[in-house]
């Protein structure tokens, strides 16, 4: 299989999609296992924020945008993400 064929089979968006699915499954497994505590909470939140960043950059196409419009989605993830981390780890 040549590199071209490999790239055709696994497009960047497909790789991102598979990563998103894997992170989702991991998040669900953590919840189902009943794991809790600040570190687990922060790990689950980090997975969610990474997934949001992947969707923003690779699915919404913000990766190549320059200037103002590069930042709203990243800030939308960071600000509520910080607030949620603060609230769930005991303030």
């Amino acid at each position: 299989m040549t590199n071209t064929q490999t790239n055709r089979w696994l497009r960047p968006c497909t790789a991102v999609y598979l990563l998103l699915m894997a992170l989702t499954l991991t998040t669900w497994a953590i919840g189902t296992a009943g794991l809790s505590g600040s570190n687990i909470t922060l790990l689950v939140l980090a997975f969610a924020l990474i997934k949001g960043w992947l969707v923003g950059d690779f699915f919404m196409g913000l990766r190549g945008v320059r200037g103002f419009w590069r930042w709203p989605v990243i800030l939308w993830l960071a600000i509520p993400g910080g607030l949620i981390a603060y609230a769930f780890t005991g303030g």
Binding site: M60, G61, L62, R63, G64, V65, R66, W69
Partner: peptide
Amino acid sequence: PWQGRYPP
């Protein structure tokens, strides 16, 4: 990928 000052 998309490039420019504005999003798609």
